[in-house]
Amino acid sequence: MLSIIRERLRQGHRTGKFPQIEPQLPARFRGLPVLSQDLSPDQRQMAAASCPYAALMDHPQGLHVDLGRCLFCADCPAQQSGALTFSQDYRLAASRREDLCYSDAEYRLAESLNQRMLKLFGRSLKLRQVSAGGCNACEADLNVLGTLVYDLGRFGIQFVASPRHADGILVTGPVTKNMQSALLDTYAAIPAPKIVIASGACAINGGPFCHSSEAHQGIGDLLPIDLYIPGCPPHPYTALDALLRLLDKR
């Protein structure tokens, strides 16, 4: 018992001060892409063609990036050609699919739930997580939110075991054919009104598996999504920021 107390004192208090204090992310962290605006039409076209996931689109108004498709690749060909750079901004969540596509205008971050939903869930949100073909990286970094560093519970948010106890569902993975019915059954078992969160590139648009014949391209055509959390996988602070925005706590 004494050794436990001694070790507890030695390990110290480690819960982060988020959201009052912004997190310190590694210098090489790849966050919100910033598009270069002075590209010639040829350069734009080349950049758009270079992404194997079609995350870049060449519009007449300028180059657009779709954060729902972007995997934030370290060897991004558009980055190498100078068309974009990755900033340190970890805040990536959006409320609508179209908001994930942006160019030079300010990125439209997720909005909070409406007043009625906030009244219901603002102080206590219970989520059921379903992994539908993910690679376990999204799942691992969601599990991290439960550790003492992030301490999700202090915001009134909790992942629960049964869909019957949940106010919403958080989905990871592109939805493999083998998981589709289990996902829909879980969603159906959650009492209404309910929230749907697509976390990670796979759940939004299929991620690295968007061309697979064994998987869907995310949950977009299966469930009505309230919150999109981009990333492959999303950084824990990206996910935490997203959840707090949804509950009007940021």
Binding site: P52, Y53, L71, C73, S131, G133, G134, C135, A137, G173, P174, T176, K177, N178, M179, A182, G207, P208, F209, H211, S212, S213, E214, A215, C232
Partner: peptide, 25 residues
């Protein structure tokens, strides 16, 4: 088998630009 994404099949004909990210995942 619930997580089956057809990974090995997608690698055939490659290496494709996407192959590396599929192996990473």
């Amino acid at each position: 088998g619930f997580q089956h994404r057809g990974l090995e099949q997608m690698l055939v004909g490659g290496p494709h630009p996407t192959s590396l990210h599929q192996i990473e995942t």
